[in-house]
């Protein structure tokens, strides 16, 4: 339909935009970008894995007086219930990463095979499925996720599912468009002429060629899922308290904003931003490494 310039990974993906911006900015030194992204990422992954060992206090039990400002012992202060903000900052990475990874896996698990099969089949099926996917794609993703999350109710799997639905079309579009060009390549025709079955062609000749971009979309998608999850839990549709969750903490902190308790809202936001930036930079670096000919220069 509309022209989508050179964007390969769906123009609604925020991580693709952030990443591309970084790549343009860094120019030849985009290796630095990938490296910074990787460091940020590993930091959060390590934080999530070793949360029980790193966090100074329990994230769900009072560890001091309520609403302490940042100070020695509570470097990010405490919440209205006396929870340590720094501990919740660390533990929050668990929820964020867990839901993002599950949501991304579900979306990929549905979107990629659909894209492969439909792209390969072509014809009327292709038109119909693409139209359905495009309709979902043009609808505001967050609002769709809100509707599904509201109906399914809280829970890790339910939230992941509602986020996943939003991103299925992204995978579908990327894969389908690649498959429809690859399937007319000479080597695919060659395979067909020597009598390869359709499934063999898809599995052996097409899939390996679309896999690199799939990896890029996966890591970009995680960043977007982190953002959507934060939005949902900010609206009260995420994991019920007291489970540490950045979006929920932000909403809670806002209630105490008028008392100038800035530490409750500044730090969870920074966590979301850093994680999103990390994934975006890393994904863009991967893209350059895996698909060197696709990138938009300048």
């Amino acid at each position: 339909m509309a022209n989508t310039t050179n964007t390969n990974y769906g123009n609604q993906m925020l991580s693709s935009r952030i990443g591309r911006g970084f790549r343009q900015l860094m120019g030849d030194s985009s290796g630095v970008m990938t490296f910074i992204g990787l460091i940020l990422l590993s930091l959060f992954v390590l934080m999530a894995i070793f949360a029980p060992y790193i966090s100074p206090y329990s994230p769900v039990e009072p560890s001091g007086a309520p609403l302490l400002s940042p100070q020695w012992g509570h470097i990010m202060g405490t919440t209205n219930l006396g929870y340590d903000v720094f501990s919740r900052f660390i533990w929050g990475s668990r929820m964020a990463l867990l839901i993002a990874v599950i949501a991304t896996s579900i979306a990929a698990f549905i979107g990629i095979p659909t894209g492969l099969l439909v792209g390969y089949a072509g014809g009327v099926t292709d038109r119909i499925v693409t139209m359905i996917m495009d309709s979902v794609y043009t609808f505001p993703g967050l609002i769709l996720a809100i509707a599904i999350a509201a109906m399914l109710g809280p829970g890790v799997l339910n939230i992941s599912l509602s986020i996943a639905v939003v991103y299925i079309p992204t995978y579908y579009r990327v894969i389908r468009s690649q498959v429809s060009t690859i399937k007319s390549e000479l080597y695919v025709e060659g395979a067909r002429s020597i009598g390869a079955k359709n499934m063999t062609i898809i599995g052996k000749y097409i899939l390996p060629n679309v896999l690199p971009s799939t990896i890029v979309v996966l890591s970009m998608n995680i960043a977007d899922a982190v953002m959507t999850e934060a939005g949902l839990s900010f609206l009260g549709l995420g994991i019920p308290p007291p489970v540490p969750d950045w979006g929920y903490d932000l909403a809670k902190g806002q209630q105490f904003l008028l008392q100038n308790d800035w530490w409750m809202v500044v730090f969870p936001g920074i966590a979301i931003i850093l994680l999103v930036l990390g994934f975006s930079m890393f994904a863009e670096g991967m893209d350059e490494y895996l698909n060197p000919n696709i990138g938009e220069k300048r």
Partner: peptide, 22 residues
């Protein structure tokens, strides 16, 4: 354009409330 885009809308809103309101 890179950094602003990575801001969660609600977080940015709360920051503005904090600075210009509180």
């Amino acid at each position: 354009s890179i950094f602003v885009y990575s801001f969660p809308v609600f977080w940015f809103g709360i920051m503005l409330q904090l600075i210009f309101g509180v």
